[in-house]
Amino acid sequence: MSNEVEKTAAAAGTKPLLEVSHLKKYFKVGNKRTLKAVDDVSFNIMPGETLGVVGESGCGKTTCGRTCVGMYDPTDGTVLYNGKNIHELKGAEKKAFTKEVQIIFQDPYASLNPRMTVAEIIGEGMDVHGLYTGKQERQERIGQLLRMVGLNQEHANRFIHEFSGGQRQRIGIARALAVEPRFILCDEPLSALDVSIQAQVANLLIRFQKELGLTYMFIAHDLAMVKHISDRVAVMYLGSVVELATSAEIYSNPLHPYTEALMSAIPIADPDIEDSRQRIMLEGEVTSPIDVPPGCKFQSRCPRAKECCRKDAPELKEVSPGHFVACHFAGK
């Protein structure tokens, strides 16, 4: 698979910003059992691109994201940022990495320190990396960041419990942007927000990407939103990527049965479409990621499962340019 990745990268003429190859992250859970949160995942992210990662809860998307930005140490595999293995960075290089890579968290209530004012929260990264020369400059920059996310200087000295979820999430974005990063891991930044606020934040993310040339890894369970924001989408199931393609391709030509089911389960806000739609109903629920049986991970819920699915795990193959699927029957 890594060969194909390199080929596509070479074809585009640029080097990927983030290269993830054969990444594994296992957790030990009691009784000598292992939870394979991330199980042999490979992908790359080009500069200025948004890679969306979707999957249901427990599919390992958050663990995968956090391992990719160095919050967790991988069990196996490598993550290269700008060609350097991020888990082996030391000293100044490590510090530079923490400035270039930021995270926007899911829960706007838990991700901001309740004892700090907005100015302290946004200024924290600037303090750590020494991004200003004087108090005056720091204050101006904070004001500028607040205005970028639609708030203003007045809010700087308030404590975060006075803000609504959407306002907090915007403060979280301002905090991430404060250190002028290149790559932002968006870990379900919209799922705790109201619909009208989701749109605000999504628009902000899209706008900042255009204006500041940011690269995103956008993790969410809301396929519609992921498809909307991302250039390419990776669908994860039980720790593995089962399908990876451009977002238009994923929508118009889903090849993995899980992607198809996911797509058909998403409600569309249009009564006529909803009334005439035939849903692919998946039986059962996501199986536990602990002690997964051999073969295809999706076999227990798959409507197409055959004998070979129980024996061999399908590999992620490129079925058409840029469209990767891990299914024995893809394209057949």
Binding site: F97, T98, S111
Partner: peptide, 14 residues
């Protein structure tokens, strides 16, 4: 384990 401490860690704070 709280997210704001993780955020601070990601930001490179000592």
């Amino acid at each position: 384990e709280s997210e704001y401490v993780l955020a601070s860690k990601a930001m490179g704070g000592s």
